[in-house]
């Protein structure tokens, strides 16, 4: 006989109304989204060169000052938000979907196919990811699209490994056997009966992947392999500011802090989501 679960016994994660940090993280994410979506229509002038105000410190007209070409830093940070979001979403979507399908089919197919895929995943994991991405970006040439391809080529392994583990534990469930007995094909079994049940941990993984992609984009742009001038990206802004760091620290601080806040916020929300989905930490 089953003993009914009792409310309020074990530790339960707090709702975000009671967690100011989580509330702040959600607010930052909302701001990031808002900035990236509305920046193109706000009449910003991120590429307006104005030589008299070169390296102007923050003031009433230019809230975050101007950079080494006299461009408004605030406008460029806002435009950079859009770049970060586009790369983050693009990388996560491509690598999560690709990785989940590869890992899922590996587990479902089993045998030689599965062993090959596992070896491939191991090889990718053994590589320093960012180095591989640099190499790929170098080969493909700079640009937003190539950046996404390079980062996704490194990022899919995590999702593939997770999806494979999930599918391995789910594939002998009776509802999957029932579907096979009904003559449902492997592709449909994976897409309808396995991946939807494995989606929750994959989505949590995706939030962390998002933060990593934003950081990587900044890193590659810092190295000059990402977004090309004059387009704004937080990474390239930091690179441009490094040379004048001691004279005008706001050039590095503004995009740096934006990057820091966004990554922290994404990670915090991912953590909260994982706790929420973890049944073991919930009493009911």
């Amino acid at each position: 006989m089953r003993i009914p679960a009792v409310r309020g016994g074990a530790h339960r994660p707090q709702g975000f109304q009671h967690d100011p940090l989580l509330l702040l993280a959600v607010a930052i994410l909302a701001l990031w989204l808002l900035a990236s979506l509305s920046a193109p229509w706000m009449g910003l002038q991120p590429n307006q060169i104005d030589l008299p105000r070169i390296l102007a410190p923050p003031n009433a007209q230019l809230w975050l000052g101007a950079d080494d070409l006299g461009r408004p830093v605030l406008d460029r940070v806002l435009m950079g938000a859009g770049t970060a979001l586009a790369v983050g979403l693009g990388v996560v979507l491509v690598s999560a979907i690709g990785g989940a399908l590869i890992g899922g089919f590996a587990a479902l197919g089993g045998g030689l196919w599965d062993r090959l895929m596992v070896r491939l995943i191991d090889v990718f994991l053994a590589f320093p990811g960012i180095l591989l991405a640099i190499a790929l970006a170098g080969i493909l040439g700079p640009g937003l699209g190539n950046l996404v391809i390079a980062l996704a080529a490194v990022g899919w392994v995590g999702y593939a490994r997770l999806a494979r583990a999930q599918v391995l534990s789910l594939r002998s469930r009776e509802h999957v056997l029932a579907a096979r007995a009904l003559g449902v094909g492997s592709g449909r079994i994976l897409l309808r009966h396995l991946l939807p049940l494995a989606a929750a941990p994959l989505m949590v993984e995706a939030t962390f992947g998002m933060a990593a992609a934003v950081i990587s984009e900044a890193g590659l742009s810092f190295l000059g392999l990402g977004v090309q001038p004059p387009d704004a990206s937080w990474g390239s802004m930091i690179r441009d500011g490094v040379g004048v760091l001691l004279v005008a620290p706001h050039l590095v601080l503004a995009p740096g802090i934006a990057l820091l806040l966004v990554v922290l916020a994404v990670n915090r929300v991912g953590d909260a989501w994982r706790d929420y989905l973890d049944v073991r930490s919930r009493a009911d």
Partner: peptide, 8 residues
């Protein structure tokens, strides 16, 4: 309980 896909 296990023989039906809970998401369908």
């Amino acid at each position: 309980f296990a023989s039906m896909n809970p998401r369908m």
